[in-house]
Amino acid sequence: MAAQSPQPQPLSRRAELLAGMRGQLPLLLGVAPFGMAYGAYAIESGLSGELTQAMSAIVFGGASQFVGVQLIASGVPGAMIVLATLLVNLRHLLYSASLAPQVDHLNRRWRWLLAYLLTDEAYAVSMSRLSRDNESPHRHWFVLGAGVALWATWQMTTSLGILLGAALPDSWSLDFALPLTFLALLMPVLTSRPAFGAAAAAGLVAVIGFDWPYGIALVVAIGAGLLAGVALDRALPGERRRELI
């Protein structure tokens, strides 16, 4: 991980960009087989190579792309598919809201760009960095680096999946790198009992709702986590303001 201790000298734009890319690296290990699996699945489901690749560029959201392909292949009407996409990606609303105060000094062009690149992975890596240090003047370059690294990997592995099929064997279990990285990012944010309660409530609902359609479980789980966190925060006044963000 980059920037583990407070930097005496603010990092340059280039150093922030590279640190963001480096921060994203362990997640790319898990994203690579996911991207190839998506490309292969879309082709198997009868989508053209152009449409498969375009969806990765236009939507840029793994889970919603899998759902989209599945619904397209089942002949579901377009309006329903768009609605399902809305449900699957609704959690990004919270990322948008939670990242906003960190970038509100930026011009519109920057915010449009960072919004396009806002995914689970880029959000987690960026917030992990910003919760330790949100003073650096070029910190948005870190967010950009994390987003661009993921974007490029997603586009390239989509292409590989289209051309080669899901060529990385399942037995390598590379997808496991995703939950492992999130685990490493989780520990430093479990700084209080309300944060712990938020994680526990969200985890529990996500497990219970695993079979619910269109990733609704993840939205409900995060909602339950926020409620649990706020409730514990109110119930345990001594815990208040111990966190920075």
């Binding site: 919270l94 939670s98 959000y123 999130f182 989780l186 944010v189 712990f196 996500a206 986590g225 966190g229």
Partner: peptide, 29 residues
């Protein structure tokens, strides 16, 4: 604008990180 959000909502956003991370980890495991 983030400032236009009610204070309670901004308060709740502090818990997005722990919530989303464990909600992704647990089903995967």
């Amino acid at each position: 604008s983030h400032d236009a959000l009610p204070a309670a909502a901004r308060d709740a956003l502090r818990f997005v990180m722990p919530a989303v991370l464990l909600a992704i980890i647990l089903p995967a495991v």
